[in-house]
Amino acid sequence: MQETGEIDAVAARVYRLRVIHPTDTVEQISARAGITPQETLEAESRLSALGLLRPSPSGGQVAVSPETAADTLLAPMEQDILQRRIAMAATRARLHALSGDYLEARSMRSAKSSIEIVQGTDNARAVIDDLVRTCSESLDALVPGSGLGEVAVRAAISNDREMLERGVKMRSLFQHSARKNRAQVRHVAVLTDAGAQVRSTTVLPSRMAIYDRSCAVLPLDPERGGAGAAVIRDPTVLNFLQQLFEHYWDRALDFSEEEQRDGPEPNEVERDVLLLMAAGKKDEAIAHQLGMSPRSVSRIVARLMERLGAESRFQAGARAALNGWLSDD
Rank of each mutant, 00 (worst) to 15 (best):
A189S: 12
A189Q: 15
V190Y: 08
V190P: 03
L191Y: 10
L191Q: 04
T192W: 05
T192R: 08
T192K: 09
D193V: 00
A194P: 06
A194L: 12
A196Y: 09
A196V: 09
Q197C: 02
V198P: 12
V198M: 06
R199E: 11
T202N: 13
T202G: 15
V203C: 07
V203D: 15
V203P: 10
L204H: 00
L204T: 01
S206T: 15
S206E: 07
S206V: 15
S206K: 12
S206P: 02
R207I: 05
R207F: 09
M208N: 04
I210T: 05
I210L: 03
I210Q: 13
Y211C: 09
Y211L: 12
Y211T: 10
D212C: 00
R213V: 14
R213M: 02
R213W: 02
S214D: 10
C215N: 03
C215Q: 01
C215S: 09
V217W: 10
V217C: 05
L218R: 03
P219L: 05
P219G: 14
L220A: 01
D221R: 02
D221G: 04
P222D: 04
P222A: 13
P222E: 03
E223N: 15
E223S: 13
E223L: 06
G225R: 03
G226H: 06
G226E: 06
A227E: 08
A229L: 09
A229H: 03
A229S: 09
A230F: 00
A230M: 07
V231F: 10
V231A: 04
R233F: 01
R233P: 12
R233G: 15
R233M: 13
P235Y: 07
P235C: 11
T236E: 11
T236D: 12
V237F: 09
F240N: 14
F240Y: 09
L241S: 07
L241F: 00
Q242I: 14
Q243W: 12
L244S: 07
F245Q: 10
F245P: 11
F245D: 11
E246C: 15
E246D: 15
H247V: 04
Y248D: 02
W249M: 00
W249N: 11
D250F: 14
D250C: 14
D250L: 14
R251V: 03
R251Q: 09
R251E: 07
L253R: 08
D254L: 04
S256T: 14
E257T: 01
E259Y: 15
E259S: 11
Q260W: 11
R261A: 15
R261K: 13
P264K: 00
P266A: 06
P266I: 12
P266Q: 04
N267K: 10
N267Q: 12
N267H: 08
E268S: 13
V269K: 00
V269G: 02
E270I: 04
E270S: 00
R271L: 00
D272C: 11
D272Y: 10
